[in-house]
Amino acid sequence: MALLQVRDLTVSFRTSDGLVQAVRGVSFDVQKGRTLGIVGESGSGKTVCTQTLLGLTRGAEVGGTAEFDGQDLLTMTSAQLRRVRGARIAAIFQDPLSSLHPLYRVGWQIVEMIRAHERVSKPAARARAIELLDLVGIPQAASRVDDYPHEFSGGMRQRAMIAMALALNPELIIADEPTTALDATVQAQVIDLLQRLRDEFDSALIIITHDLGVIADMADQVLVMYAGKAVEIADRRTLFYLPHHPYTQGLLESIPGSAGVNEKLRPIPGQPPSLINLPSGCAFHPRCRFVMDRCLTEIPELRTVERGHLSACHLPLDLTGLGSADDSARQQAADAGREKIG
């Protein structure tokens, strides 16, 4: 059984402009020792999704279930959730500076974190903090443990955050854009570190990112989100080489260099949809090259393309891949499904 089983998660916010449907029925599993990558662009609901699991979306209307080791995270009281969060589920956020309290020493924050969940003496907790900082590659950890966050560089802060997340050997680590604020060379260090640590502690890891490069590096399983829904779920190689959903395909083709340096990029046209005023049928249809009549009215369900590969698109299931032959096959199928739209 999976460590985390999320079923039909929905999250919406009431705002003065209307109901924002941030997550509209997302299901996924995370296994021990595996990495799930969640990709999506801003507004796709990927961050809201995991923040809801952590109980960090106050004021939201939440539906569905999220069973962590048999307990539903969504029905826990905040006291129960607090015990789980930190100790068994740890979170790493995008901006390490705002996640570390600026007025407390880094070491103190780790010590407090440990002592909030476990009965250990201060010196023991401090020794553990130093050990952790050393583990994540902070040089001279024994002396830097007493630094304030501003005395750390961006990369070191992110590593300190990771150290804090690991303090209690969590079974699940949720990393939300852990490398986005970092430079390429530092990003490489952090990715390397996260991978080593996951293997060492046999934890499960959820990586949320908009960067397909990070996904290609780290994820075992990938979930692509668009407008609050999972549009494609696949293992890493399938997703990158044999995608089914036109959105996934569009994302891959938007990356500079994906089709060779000298080819013109093929962006997805249009803008992401309003989460208040979603397009009818498939939310992606206004931007889709292969839109058919039924896409305007029927919301596509996730269907199994093959074992472990699911896609929410009305196109025939055998049409996967990125080549021009695959494209013309898709185009043919789409043309066959068009009567009303030109």
Binding site: E41, H210, I255, P256, L265, R266, I268
Partner: peptide
């Protein structure tokens, strides 16, 4: 910018 939008602006 998001990847798909990034490509629009580059083009």
């Amino acid at each position: 910018l998001d990847v798909s939008i990034q490509a629009q602006i580059i083009n």
